[in-house]
Design a protein around this nucleic acid. Structure first.
Length: 438
DNA sequence: TCTGGGGTCCTAGGACCC
DNA sequence: TCTGGGGTCCTAGGACCC
């Protein structure tokens, strides 16, 4: 049976989410910024056309934003996360067994379809996602995941194909791959791109046709796998069930520099709490915890960064214990007199929550009781919203919170911010049709 | 004033064991 | 003169992805 993979990718996802709920943004340049309003992480096509680059620091581009009337948003992750779920649920309904690869991408398994029916399926899927969620998709098809990724690039580059492009069973595959820059191949990053160009390999066809031993020697078996996939040999399967994580990180830059140990402890406790919640969601307990702090490397001022590791006596997902260990480690590395930019925690060395090895040095550890408490806390927060209850160690003032000065409403996740459909007598509506949102 | 926040996998080399 | 060899585990660093 012929394998066919599809990659469905939301166009300019964050920018598109903002547009769904404010159609007046249609046709205008939009950018969405990273946490702390730092870098540009999403751009509408109009913003791309202005030459605004992915990852560009926002403060360096204020003049371009102003000059061209670019509409700027802080990232609204609860909105994007919710919209992502709607898109993925819609795709899953028509193509069961998808792999949700990122917040805005999914791999589909269309094996068994003919090249023609798979294209038709993709077209219909694209239309229904647009109709049900308002989000535009591009879909690429190929005999491997890497080829589906490449096809997706063509779907975006060649709008005349209506957002769907297939590399399956094509006579002109060589020419197409010649037109794909080597750095655009999934799995070839900037370092290998430079290396390959130095050796005269500039496009996907040349890379596909390079010798196995040469690729393996310089790019390990990962590079060879990518080349095989370009040749149509599927090496990377669809992962239907999410693979449990081996490490969980939570960290964030502060909205302003932080000097006091007290505030660092609050911020760190908040990260521990978030990480522990994710840990429990995948039914794991952690046996190792890393803590780190650092100053702002972009500033011309005294720099300090350090990290410390706690080996936990008993693997746990109990937030108060994890906070205590994290605080103890933080106190060991904290030095006064520095302006800190960021702190965070990394949990690792997981075991399943229900087979935790007891430690003879900590025989009284009330594992079952602690798990019960966490279950209740997680349930309350799931029912009544994140942070409905939290630990006092996380602080109340939170002066270190990130900046989000250009946040759009939580259109889909907060009752008071749901868009309102305005009604009025028909004569009034006819008087000023253009201004009102509906 | 202002530069994100997560993750994965592979390899080389050293420590250590018998 | 002759100075083993195979295996495992760990860590640091580098590459990649979104």
């Amino acid at each position: 049976m012929e394998k066919i993979f599809a990659l469905a990718d939301c166009n300019n996802f964050y920018a598109s989410c903002e547009r769904v709920f404010d159609p007046s943004l249609e046709g205008k340049p939009i950018v969405v910024l990273s946490n702390n309003d730092g870098c540009v992480v999403a751009r509408s096509n109009e913003a791309k056309a202005l030459g605004i680059k992915m990852g560009a620091p926002a403060f360096q581009h204020e003049h371009i934003f102003k000059k061209h009337g670019v509409i700027v948003f802080s990232s609204n992750y609860s909105l994007y996360g919710d919209m992502s779920q709607r898109v993925m649920a819609t795709i899953e309904q028509f193509s069961p067994g998808i792999e949700v690869y990122s917040i805005d991408e999914a791999f589909l398994n269309l094996s068994g379809m003919t090249p023609e029916t798979s294209i038709e399926h993709a077209r219909q899927l694209r239309a229904v996602v647009r109709r049900w969620t308002g989000i535009p998709l591009s879909i690429g098809l190929g005999q491997t995941k890497t080829l589906a990724k490449a096809a997706n690039k063509f779907a975006k580059k060649k709008p005349e194909h209506g957002g769907v492009f297939s590399l399956v069973a094509r006579a002109d595959i060589d020419t197409l791959l010649e037109n794909l820059p080597v750095g655009d191949i999934w799995g070839i990053g900037s370092r290998h791109e430079l290396f390959l160009k130095r050796h005269g390999i500039t496009n996907a066809r040349q890379f596909r046709d390079a010798s196995d031993s040469w690729i393996k020697k310089h790019m390990t078996i990962m590079g060879l796998r990518t080349a095989m996939e370009l040749r149509g040999v599927s090496c990377i399967p669809i992962e239907k069930a999410p693979v449990p994580k081996k490490g969980i990180m939570s960290s964030r830059s502060f909205g302003r520099p932080i000097e006091s140990l007290e505030e660092l402890k609050e911020a760190l406790a908040t990260h521990v709490s978030r990480a522990a919640e994710k840990l429990r969601a995948q039914r794991s307990a952690a046996s190792v915890l890393h803590v780190f702090i650092l100053t702002n490397r972009f500033k011309n001022e005294p720099q300090y960064s350090n990290s410390a590791t706690a080996i936990l006596p008993v693997a746990t997902a109990y937030t108060p214990d994890l906070i205590a260990h994290a605080h103890e480690r933080l106190e060991a590395i904290y030095k006064p007199g520095y302006r800190y930019k960021k702190t965070g925690v990394f949990l690792t060395e997981f075991v399943p929550e229900n087979i935790i090895q007891q430690n003879i040095l900590a025989p009284e550890y009330p594992a079952e009781r602690n798990r019960e408490i966490m279950r209740v806390v997680d349930k309350i927060n799931a029912r009544w919203g994140a942070d409905s209850i939290r630990y006092a160690a996380e602080g109340v003032q939170n002066g270190w919170q990130m900046r989000r000065e250009r946040l759009s409403p939580h259109y889909t996740t907060v009752w008071s911010e749901i868009p309102v459909i305005k009604t009025a007598p028909i004569e009034e509506l006819e008087k000023e049709p253009a201004q009102e949102k509906s």
